[in-house]
Amino acid sequence: MTVPASTPFHLGLTPERIIDAAQQLTRESNLFGWSIRDLARRLQVTPSVIYHHVGGKDLLAKRVAERVIASIHAPDGALEWQEWFRRLLIDAVYPAAVSHPGVAKWLLMHGVPFPSAAGIFEVGIGKLERAGIEPGALIAYSAIMNNATLTISMGDERLLHEEDGPRDHAAMMAEFQRAYTDHPRMAALSDEFIAGFAEGGETAARLREQYYRYVVEVTLTGVASGAGPA
């Protein structure tokens, strides 16, 4: 689409509307999967209008990630620390992040420099301190959050390749079967675990969530092994 220079398509356009569109594009693809030109086409403006109102892709990505973080609310503060983190990661972080592919990767790269996350951080650190976690609450908090975020990011990366199609899926599984012919345990791993991820769609989504829940539980159990008296 060609936008005439004299056409005031940007009238009524606000930074919030631009971020709305950027967030929607992220839901539909991946935070790293769309460009300023894609966003401009969605809004029917020239790319220069986007830069004028908000800035470049880096700043837009930050604003989308900030919105996702702001949508996450801390669980009941009365919960025991493991259950508090379980509810935070499974009920709040996971649905917010997986519905915005690429945001988890952005957070791993940039951290969480948003005031809206401060309250969650304070409560989480406080709970770990009161539990007497060793070698320290800050390290434990980082391990818990990073393990969860990294797992979501890995799932997002797989999503980018799900559209490779049945041909690539079939070729991948045939290759695993040839490689593991004489190794029954590895063949079982291929058939029962890898195949589901490679299949994509609802099967892969279910396995990603199942794996995420397992990572959360294993991480919390590992952190608990360094807990002092309650």
Rank of each mutant, 00 (worst) to 15 (best):
M1D: 09
T2H: 12
P4S: 11
S6R: 08
S6V: 12
L13H: 09
L13N: 02
P15E: 04
E16P: 07
I18K: 05
D20H: 00
A22L: 10
T26A: 04
R27W: 01
E28F: 02
E28N: 11
L31K: 00
F32G: 03
W34E: 07
I36E: 14
I36K: 12
I36S: 08
R37A: 13
R37K: 14
R37V: 11
D38R: 09
R42T: 07
T46A: 14
S48G: 15
Y51G: 10
H53P: 05
G55P: 08
G55H: 10
K57S: 14
L60A: 13
A61E: 15
A61W: 02
R63V: 08
R63F: 08
R67D: 01
R67L: 02
V68D: 05
S71V: 04
S71D: 10
I72R: 07
H73E: 13
A74Y: 10
D76V: 09
A78P: 02
A78C: 11
L79D: 07
E80S: 12
W81G: 04
W81A: 08
Q82I: 14
E83W: 06
W84G: 08
R86K: 11
R87Y: 03
R87W: 01
L88Q: 06
I90V: 15
A92W: 00
A96W: 00
S99Y: 01
S99F: 03
H100W: 06
G102H: 08
V103N: 02
K105H: 06
W106G: 00
L107M: 13
P113V: 12
P115Y: 04
A118W: 00
A118C: 04
I120S: 03
I120V: 14
F121D: 10
G124F: 06
L128T: 02
E129Q: 14
E129I: 10
R130G: 00
G132T: 02
E134P: 03
P135Q: 05
G136H: 08
I139L: 15
A140E: 04
Y141E: 13
Y141H: 15
N147S: 15
A148I: 07
T149Q: 06
M154E: 11
M154P: 01
M154K: 09
G155Q: 05
E157V: 11
E157K: 08
R158H: 11
L159S: 08
L160T: 05
H161K: 11
E162H: 11
E162R: 12
E162G: 05
E162L: 11
G165A: 06
P166Q: 10
R167W: 09
H169G: 07
A171R: 10
A174Y: 06
E175F: 12
D182V: 07
H183G: 05
A187R: 14
A188C: 04
L189E: 05
S190N: 01
D191H: 11
E192K: 08
G196S: 09
A198C: 03
A198M: 12
G200L: 06
E202L: 09
T203S: 09
A204D: 03
A204F: 00
E209A: 02
E209Q: 13
Y211S: 14
Y212C: 03
R213W: 03
V216Q: 04
V216I: 15
L220W: 06
L220V: 05
V223G: 02
S225Y: 04
S225I: 10
G228E: 01
G228P: 04
A230V: 08
A230P: 06
